[in-house]
Each structure stands twice: as structure tokens, then as C-alpha cells.
């Protein structure tokens, strides 16, 4: 069951990320907006992250047949997704995310070499949770300013992804419980909510890859 849900989640994540990434890129090519460029990077990373994990599961299913996906592939996929979540949060003007001191900057990398891939997964999931929760709150705050109903859907989507990420991380404490399955179902719901307002954007007469003369 988990295996099937994991496959569905990663495929949906890949497709939703790809669709929003392409749309952002079209917007960037048409307007030159740096915000849309950041969104392109964000959703391309999210899409790639899901794709890496999905590929891992497909390879396991058809080639290695070991019964569980390679831990390092899962960790790499989650790390790539985290980069995407960072760019969503960064678009909401995180200006002091990294410590200013160069000493701290060098030290912050150090723990990554001292922990196993399982521990790295914990770190990436918890950071992703924080970034997603921040993005969800900022998006909801923007709704109160401009009353754009699409923002509610995106905010709820990011919120559900954050909750799913938290439950996925917490399921390490109770490995045999339904927490992990629940986290995946919640994340699928979050991705669908994220896509709903974006799917309504009309792209008719939109020129792709053509600079204004």
C-alpha cells in the first residue's frame, strides 16, 4: 500500500511541479520578472526531486526488486525538493535565512558530513517543513491583502505539504503505524490544491520564447 501511495505521490508531485514550473518559465520569458524566475527554479526543483524518488521506486520495482528503495536516492530527492521549497520561501523575502557571520556559514555545512543519510533525511524533512509552513503563512497573509481566492488554495496546499512533511518525519518514531501513509495522502491533497488555481490561468495567445520587438 505504501509502495503504491509513494509511487502516486511522486508521480503527481513530478507532474504538478513540472506544470507550474513550465508556466512560471513562460511567464518569465514573456515579462522578464525575477519573481517568476524564482518560481521557475522552485517548481523545477520540486518536480526534479519527486522525479528522482519516483525513478528510484520504478528502478526498485522493475530492476533491483529488493523490496525497499535505496535510502540515498530518497535523501537526494528530498534534498532537491527542499531547494524548491527554499525558493518559494525566498520569494516571500527571507532576507536573513543564512547567518551573516562567515564563521557560522562555514560551520553550518559541517554537520552534513558527520551524519548518515537517514539523519540527513530527518534534517531535510524538518527544514522543508519550516520552509513550507513559512510559505503557507505568507501566502495566507497575502490573501488578506489582495483577496485573491487562488491564494487560499495555494496556502492550503503548502500547509498540507508541510503537515505531510511533518508526519513523514514523525513516522520514523512509529515506523509501523499509518502515519507514513497518512502523510503521503495529505501531500497528494496538497499538490492538487496547489495546482487548482494555477490550472485556471488562461494561456491563450501567450507567446513562448519570443522577445518583444
Amino acid at each position: 500500500m505504501d509502495f503504491l501511495l509513494e509511487n502516486i505521490l511522486n508521480l503527481v508531485g513530478f507532474l504538478v511541479g513540472l506544470a507550474i514550473g513550465i508556466m512560471s518559465y513562460i511567464g518569465f520569458r514573456n515579462t522578464g520578472s525575477p519573481t517568476l524566475f524564482r518560481l521557475t527554479i522552485a517548481f523545477s526543483s520540486i518536480s526534479l526531486g519527486f522525479f528522482v524518488i519516483w525513478t528510484g521506486y520504478v528502478v526498485e520495482d522493475f530492476v533491483t526488486k529488493s523490496g525497499s528503495v535505496e535510502r540515498s536516492i530518497q535523501t537526494v530527492g528530498i534534498a532537491i525538493q527542499m531547494v524548491g521549497y527554499f525558493f518559494i520561501a525566498f520569494s516571500h523575502s527571507i532576507k536573513s535565512f543564512f547567518p551573516k557571520s562567515s564563521y557560522f556559514r562555514s560551520v553550518i555545512i559541517l554537520p552534513l558530513f558527520l551524519v548518515s543519510s537517514v539523519q540527513l533525511e530527518h534534517i531535510f524533512r524538518s527544514v522543508s517543513f519550516i520552509l513550507l509552513a513559512y510559505g503557507a503563512i505568507e501566502t495566507m497573509l497575502s490573501y488578506f491583502e489582495n483577496r485573491n481566492k487562488g491564494a487560499i488554495s495555494v496556502s492550503a496546499g503548502l500547509g498540507l505539504l508541510a503537515l505531510g512533511e511533518f508526519l513523514g518525519w514523525y513516522s520514523f518514531v512509529f515506523p509501523e503505524s499509518v502515519l507514513y501513509s497518512a502523510s503521503m495522502i495529505i501531500k497528494i491533497g496538497g499538490l492538487i490544491l496547489l495546482f487548482i488555481p494555477v490550472s485556471k490561468v488562461p494561456l491563450t495567445k501567450m507567446k513562448f520564447d519570443e522577445d518583444p520587438k
Binding site: 520578472s33 519573481t35 497575502s142
Partner: peptide, 18 residues
Amino acid sequence: EFLQAYYTFTNFADNFGL
């Protein structure tokens, strides 16, 4: 054409609160 794209993608970015 640029203005039409501008309005379309302003709405798109609005969905993300941007």
C-alpha cells in the same frame, strides 16, 4: 501583447501571494 502577458502572470503570481 506584453501588457496582456503582464496581467495574466500578475494573476498567476497573486495565487502564490507574490
